[in-house]
Design a protein around this nucleic acid. Structure first.
Lengths: 354, 354
DNA sequence: AGAACTTACGATGTACGTAACGATT
DNA sequence: AATCGTTACGTACATCGTAAGTTCT
């Protein structure tokens, strides 16, 4: 394996403090050696980017090259050069195929991720000062949020920042979290899953409860008393899928009373649920924010705030990521209590400003 | 100012999501745009290094070029190119002279510092896996620590890691902290000042009190009772300078009893103090670790642990800095309770591992 | 006048893409 | 046989140092 030897010229650092037999010296603070910490650096961001993407793409250099619009040989070579410079193999090679990270690779990857994050931050700061009204803002949200909570924020934002290209990605709570972690999304909004992810911060936005929808003339509308779980459980139920929009709280409530609701249909969003309620296929349990007497003419709603535990919708951000000025504006429009100071402090958690 | 305009070719990023009149799109998570976050990167570490050094050297490019062994024009150009790429001026230019950081520069600098730190970490991880017994270890310590606490650690360390080039820098507590912050030192040891620095973590090492030294036959040796501050204050005192080795606790003790000690001489280290005590110029108050009946033949010592507040010597580390394996070994030899796990956790404070 | 940064220019070296090769499934 | 990573090679570009230029003190 001659690859790990060092045929290339020795850098000045290894020569500097005289090759003495006594590798120990007292030096006063002002007497500084030549190279100082942070010596040689033919290491570059391109190499780091290739490494990161190789991991993300499942160790296929072909795919990496394609994704990053370059040639395989280039990727291959840059990675090898980084490995040579660091003196370790980052990737496990089974024959000629990359199959995973070596132990040093595992140790290096988080550092590479942080480097790429900070490099992004650098560019954002630049853009924030030079073109504060321009740029892009990527929001990841679940259907409920994208459909009911965000529209007016988005409308106001576009009016205020017409030059900012706004991307609204929709996905499951887990996908939202993943997009934040990878940097694909700047801001995430979801009710589940955002808290408790390594590398993310979650800030509470607002609290809400579930409501019940039925077609006009439904038996539940006759009752004079407040709605009960027992009454609900006598009808077929249509509600969210597992892991979506507070479904867990719905199941818990029934389970606590020893009831087994007859869930005949589940969906990922309130619109679908309401559609099937209109078709009289069952009683709908949806987030109350999804209910609007104006819009839902063909339906009747019943309060159910006393039946199910309160849900908290959270805003997720990537720790250590610099946010553009307009991102703070977006957040504050959405949740006025989340001012720039509050958000900045939360995001800085886990990064030392030096 | 044509410099801030953009005559160079536009990067693919600004074209990617079609220049539509409707800068807003719903995209599913899997449908990803071409460049992805972390787009163009003709930004390089060299430029960042020049920026950092320019700030450290007080904005003299000439000095930077000299320190980093390169030419002024090269530094000048690289900095301008970084500024152009980020779209902001980092440095204030008074005529042709650099005089300080612009507001964007202020925002960028901490990011640059973190980037350089992580780049160092990358190299360290590499070296730790490829040459775990080789490298350098830079310790910054005050005189007391270098003279009395560290020698046996250093001896053991050199025996265990003969291939590691050990640098022991001596300085005031503030200098120790500064060297840690700049990355010149990997490990700092001091009694004062380490705690409460932004960007550093301080871990307690050991606790100690002051002792009193007098020449043989001194009147204080006659007394049968334990030493009192009042008795001490009747003699001229020789002790540490302000800010060194627990001097504050000495002053506090006297002040608390309303006594005004006659401090006739101050020094930065116990050796100097003991020398003048031997010359009978006064009573010495020094750290008890500096006293050794074997070695201090011409002196007599008196216990003073009950008179002055206990001091805690601390080990300082730079937050977020990766430590070489042998650095952990050094620390554990010095303070057995500071195991790798404990230290790692402390250093990771303020850095998100992703 | 001198010091400091910038511009200009030529030599060197590095990065990239195309093409050919070798190995694995 | 096909796929995937590596090696080889030529071109294009970037970096760096020297030297001349400009603007302050």
């Amino acid at each position: 394996m001659p690859r790990m030897s060092r045929p290339w010229p020795v850098r000045p650092e290894s020569l500097s403090p005289s090759p003495s037999f006594f590798p120990f010296c007292f030096c006063l603070p002002q007497a500084r050696a030549a190279p100082a910490p942070g010596g040689a650096l033919p290491m570059n961001f391109q190499q780091l980017r290739y490494v990161r993407e190789t991991v993300r793409r499942g160790y296929s250099l072909t795919e990496v090259a394609h994704t990053l619009h370059t040639s395989q040989p280039g990727v291959s070579r840059q990675i090898r050069e980084l490995e040579e410079e660091l003196g370790v193999e980052i990737f496990i090679r089974a024959g000629k195929r990359l199959t995973g990270l070596t132990p040093p690779g595992e140790a290096l990857l988080p550092i590479v991720e942080r480097l790429m994050l900070e490099a992004d931050n650098l560019r954002r700061v630049g853009a924030d000062f030079s073109a504060s009204e321009q740029g892009r803002l990527s929001i990841a949200a679940t259907h409920s949020q994208a459909r009911y909570a965000l529209p007016h924020v988005v409308r106001d934002f576009r009016q205020r920042y017409p030059q900012v290209r706004l991307h609204l990605h929709q996905g499951s709570p887990e996908q939202v979290a993943q997009m934040l972690r990878s940097g694909e999304a700047d801001i995430g909004v979801a009710t589940e899953a955002l808290a408790g992810y390594e590398g993310l911060v979650a800030l509470p936005c607002y609290r809400w409860t579930h409501g019940v929808v039925v077609p006009p003339g439904h038996p539940l509308l006759q009752s004079q008393q407040a709605l009960t779980l027992e009454a609900l459980s006598r009808f077929p139920i249509i509600t969210y899928e597992q892991g979506y929009t507070g479904r867990a709280h719905i199941d818990e409530a029934f389970a606590r009373e020893g009831l087994e609701p007859d869930v005949v249909l589940t969906a990922m969003d309130a619109d679908v649920i309401k559609t099937y309620v209109e078709l009289d296929m069952g009683v709908g349990i949806v987030a109350s924010v999804a209910l609007d007497a104006e819009r839902d003419q063909g339906l009747r709603t019943l309060d159910a705030g006393h039946l199910f535990e309160v849900n908290t919708t959270r805003l997720g951000l990537r720790k250590g990521a610099w946010l553009r000025g307009y991102a703070y504006a977006f957040i504050e429009t959405f949740v006025p209590t989340l001012t720039r100071e509050v958000v900045e402090q939360a995001v800085r958690q886990g990064v030392e400003p030096e």
